[in-house]
Design a protein around this nucleic acid. Structure first.
Lengths: 131, 131
DNA sequence: GTTTTCGTTTACGTTAACGTCAACCATGTG
DNA sequence: CACATGGTTGACGTTAACGTAAACGAAAAC
């Protein structure tokens, strides 16, 4: 079951270092809909990519509800003009949110860099025996 | 009570669009220790800055426990060599974590840009009447 | 002077995101 | 065939991060 675009639930759990419970939970929440071989879940490459997206969203601090939105963004929307425009709107919102978050990170990194510098200064001073 | 580096709990709650309950909760967790005027909490400029840091951490998806670490990083550590080295270590860990997170954001932004492009293509195609 | 307006403590309620456990197939291995 | 292995569906437990409500104190407004 390891070749040909097919993954068991354990394959994915091990690869991404999460529990099978977590994966089933995501399915409960409607985030994934793997195929079945009889009773067992069978995951395709697309399912795997989708899970990857979900976990990326988690790392970025999004809730599962938000991730539901985010993930559905990557599926091609319907072809009517109002739907496309709605879709574009949602895309823009998510982008601006992420850009704010990136700015937050930049600020924090700057702060950390300053703290590191001060710390190194203190270390050399201390090592030189100056009280 | 609005001038001279003094803020009431409501001032801060309104400014940062959170509830007073949240601020008191952070205090319970040891994240803040405002002064008191009799029974009432009085927040200094430093307290306000600290709260700002906490909220930034939240936006970045950190837990309050992690934020406790992060915030304490900005206070000058003790001056013994092992403590300074421990401090530097923690700083580096946080930095690498944030850098990973930034990379995640870049990837997601790229994906979003592609989705936006496809969407705009679809829009012009649809507007041109091509089925 | 009393009645709003803020604030305080205490305590129980709630939601998201899983963990944990039980009871039950299915299957392949000795 | 027995049984160990891996998966499945409930169902209840747990933790973090607050929400909400009660019961009270103080001070500011009418």
């Amino acid at each position: 079951m390891n070749d040909a675009d097919q993954y068991s639930i354990r394959d994915l759990a091990d690869e991404f270092d999460i529990t099978t419970r977590t994966i089933r939970f995501y399915e409960d929440k409607g985030l994934m809909q793997p195929a079945r071989d009889g009773q067992r879940r069978v995951y395709s490459k697309g399912d795997r990519a989708r899970l990857k997206l979900i976990l990326r969203g988690k790392r970025l601090g999004f809730s599962l509800d938000e991730i539901t939105q985010l993930v559905s963004l990557y599926e091609t929307p319907e072809d009517t003009v109002p739907q496309l425009e709605q879709y574009l709107e949602t895309l823009r919102n998510h982008r601006s949110l992420l850009e704010k978050q990136r700015a937050d990170i930049e600020r924090t990194l700057t702060d950390l860099a300053r703290a590191e510098e001060e710390c190194r200064q203190a270390l050399t001073t201390t090592l030189n025996g100056q009280s």
